[in-house]
């Protein structure tokens, strides 16, 4: 891949009030680069759901976004509890989120399915007790 630009962010864990700042930063950067609005929206949603997951399930992590000529690759890495059964986690509606998270409008078990739907490629690698890395590629048509 021909990387033009790499953006990196530290995502804090804990409370949700700052969740989305990294996604917002990416969105603004992609706008400045003049990418197609529908590509920007897909990247934004993928990254935002992934960022929320790192905050609520993994106590934060790092986000890296590589903007190439043909695609945008989002890599989210955390050292959280890991996902024991990835296939199950990918199912629509599956969630281990607490009610307190649901009261904030998340935890409906739609994050990973949304990320899959909006990206052209997605891989989830996870080891229980070590952490999770989610990689998503959104192609620029």
């Amino acid at each position: 891949m021909d990387d033009c630009i790499t953006l990196t962010y530290q995502v804090e864990g804990g409370d949700l009030s700052h969740a989305g700042e990294a996604s917002s930063g990416v969105k603004q950067a992609l706008r400045k680069l003049g990418l197609d609005p529908s590509v920007i929206r897909r990247v934004s949603v993928c990254m935002y759901e992934g960022e929320i997951n790192m905050v609520i399930h993994a106590n934060g992590g790092t986000a890296r976004v590589d903007v190439g000529l043909d695609d945008v690759t989002i890599t989210l890495t955390d050292t959280g509890p890991g996902i024991p059964d990835i296939d199950k986690a990918m199912q629509a509606g599956f969630t281990t989120a607490a009610d307190s998270v649901r009261d904030l409008g998340f935890g409906a078990g739609m994050g990973l399915p949304n990320m899959k739907k909006y990206s052209d490629e997605m891989t989830v690698e996870s080891t229980v007790g070590v952490g999770t890395t989610v990689t998503m590629v959104v192609r620029i048509e």
Binding site: G20, S23, S24, P37, E49, P113, N114
Partner: peptide, 27 residues
């Protein structure tokens, strides 16, 4: 966030910063 189509207006009973973030992500 699940609907790909354009949505310009968000009606919600939820009040927190994530509502604004969600609206932002969806343009």
């Amino acid at each position: 966030l699940a609907y790909v189509k354009n949505q310009a207006l968000l009606l919600t009973g939820l009040v927190n910063p994530q509502v604004v973030r969600t609206a932002e992500m969806m343009d």
